[in-house]
Measured scan of single mutants.
Amino acid sequence: AVSDRLIGRKGVVMEAISPQNSALVKVDGETWRATSGTVLDVGEEVSVKAIEGVKLVVEKLE
């Protein structure tokens, strides 16, 4: 799938994300809905860990 190429890519949080709420991230110039197990604020850099349906699963870039 096209989205599989995004695993391992870096992105930027466009809307705050919490474990209860998905929000938008920008990866390679494209906007995607994403979820995370932690709270992520706007502007934080993230890494794509997986794809669940049409959502990216991201975590904060260390």
Score class of each variant (00 low, 15 high):
A1E: 10
A1N: 11
A1W: 11
V2N: 11
V2F: 10
S3M: 14
S3W: 07
S3C: 11
S3N: 10
D4G: 09
R5H: 10
R5M: 08
L6R: 04
L6M: 08
I7E: 03
I7D: 03
G8Q: 02
G8F: 00
G8L: 00
G8P: 02
G8K: 02
R9S: 07
K10E: 05
K10L: 10
K10S: 08
K10W: 08
K10I: 14
K10T: 12
G11D: 02
G11Q: 01
V12K: 06
V12F: 06
V12M: 06
V12I: 13
V13G: 01
V13Q: 01
E15T: 08
A16T: 11
A16H: 08
A16G: 08
A16V: 14
I17N: 14
I17D: 13
S18G: 14
S18L: 08
S18N: 10
S18R: 07
P19S: 12
P19G: 14
Q20I: 09
Q20N: 13
Q20E: 12
Q20P: 14
N21Y: 11
N21I: 08
N21S: 11
N21L: 10
S22G: 12
A23H: 07
L24N: 05
L24Q: 05
V25A: 01
V25D: 03
V25I: 10
K26M: 14
K26H: 08
K26V: 12
K26Q: 11
K26W: 14
V27M: 03
V27W: 02
V27R: 00
V27P: 01
D28R: 00
G29M: 03
G29K: 06
G29C: 11
G29Y: 03
G29W: 02
E30R: 06
E30M: 07
T31Q: 11
W32H: 14
W32I: 10
R33F: 15
R33Q: 15
T35L: 09
S36F: 04
S36M: 05
S36R: 00
G37L: 13
T38E: 13
V39P: 14
V39L: 11
V39C: 13
L40A: 03
L40T: 02
L40K: 01
L40S: 02
L40W: 02
L40R: 00
D41T: 14
D41K: 14
V42A: 07
V42P: 08
V42H: 04
G43F: 04
E44T: 12
E44P: 01
E44G: 05
E45N: 08
V46E: 01
S47V: 15
S47H: 12
V48E: 01
V48R: 01
K49L: 13
K49V: 15
K49S: 07
A50Y: 07
I51Y: 05
I51G: 01
E52L: 11
E52A: 09
G53I: 02
G53W: 00
G53M: 02
V54I: 12
V54W: 11
K55R: 13
K55L: 15
L56V: 05
L56Q: 01
L56I: 09
V58P: 02
V58Y: 00
V58N: 02
E59A: 09
E59I: 09
K60C: 04
L61I: 12
L61E: 06
L61M: 09
L61A: 08
E62V: 13
E62W: 09
E62L: 12
